[in-house]
């Protein structure tokens, strides 16, 4: 069976038409057609539907078929609402802080576990627990650890004399978001650890030895030998963490519901509330489209990072 009908060369020019390329590679496209159709149905159609819906007013008292076209009004409403900016700030803090510290902690754990020592396998398994545990279970676990009246952390802090009364983690507008970020970092650092441990396998041992022979100290070996080799995997890890954090829902929703007073409300929880709490599908769709654009930008960088060095390869 022919896999490709035409000669495959590295000289296919960029100005070749899409149609011509499809004709040339018709067999290849035929193979992926079923998958493309499925993706059109389950991905492309919902995206189109959401974009379309974002231009309509959909009050709770009307059926969707009775929606009214309002143009860009939903976008205007979003961008002029004070809540948008506070939710966006919360989202940025949540995403950047979670990503940065999860990566940093994951890197530390990966470097520690890269060396041989007794009990390494056990420690690696233990450090993987936060990643494999369900987000729902983790949220409830941490909710009780943090509980402002009967939480374990609060009780220990009182018992050990650090505080007079239990620390208010989740019921305070200044501490709720940082407390949730800690939970998120705890859940995600294992992922960074796994990725970076895989990356560390690619660092040539002889380079590290040569650097050591040349008198480089531990920091210099890390900075000048290890870090450059981790650059690719680090970029992918950071982008995946950012995408995951922008889309985070379970932890903030279950632990605080976006509260108190919106202090831990991030984009996804806000969109969920508008859609399912207020039944305002048009506004929620407009929010989702904005989030989609942000995610696409991140996705672009992710693909760039993944395909770096692929440009010279034949199609």
């Amino acid at each position: 069976m022919a896999v490709s009908s035409g000669p495959v060369t590295g000289s296919l020019r960029r100005d070749d038409g899409l149609l011509r390329r499809i004709v040339t590679h018709r067999a290849d496209y035929a193979y992926v057609l079923p998958a493309l159709v499925v993706m059109m149905v389950v991905i492309a159609y919902p995206i189109w539907f959401t974009v379309d819906m974002s231009f309509y007013k959909t009050p709770a008292s009307l059926q969707l078929r009775d929606r009214t076209f309002v143009g860009w009004k939903n976008y205007h409403t979003i961008l002029t609402a004070p809540a948008f900016w506070s939710v966006t700030l919360n989202t940025l803090i949540w995403t950047v802080a979670s990503t940065f510290f999860a990566f940093l902690l994951g890197l530390g754990a990966a470097l520690s576990l890269h060396r041989e020592f007794a009990g390494r396998a056990v420690l690696r398994a233990i450090l993987l627990i936060p990643y494999v545990i369900s987000a729902v279970a983790a949220s409830y676990l941490w909710k009780w650890l943090y509980h402002s009246d009967f939480g374990v952390i609060g009780a220990l802090s009182v018992q050990w004399g650090f505080t007079d009364k239990p620390i208010n983690f989740l019921d305070n507008i200044h501490t709720a978001l940082p407390s949730l970020i800690v939970v998120n970092i705890w859940r995600e650092f294992s992922f960074a650890m796994i990725m970076l441990m895989a990356g560390l396998q690619t660092v040539p041992e002889q380079l590290l030895r040569a650097a050591q022979v040349d008198g480089a100290n531990a920091w210099q070996r890390f900075w000048h030998v290890t870090a450059p080799h981790l650059k690719g995997v680090s970029m992918v890890t950071v982008l995946l963490l950012m995408v995951a954090n922008f889309n985070s829902f379970i932890v903030p929703w279950l632990m605080t519901g976006g509260g108190p007073a919106g202090a831990s409300d991030i984009w996804i929880t806000h969109i969920y509330q508008i859609a399912f709490g207020r039944q305002n599908w048009g506004l929620a769709s407009a929010y989702s489209v904005i989030l989609f654009i942000v995610m696409m930008c991140l996705g672009y960088f992710y693909v760039q990072a993944l395909t770096r060095g692929d440009k010279g390869r034949p199609e």
Binding site: S148, D149, F150, N168, L170, D171, M255, T256, G257, P260
Partner: peptide
């Protein structure tokens, strides 16, 4: 009065 659970908000 702070006479109700601090956790009332969650």
């Amino acid at each position: 009065d702070q006479s109700v659970p601090v956790s009332a908000l969650t």
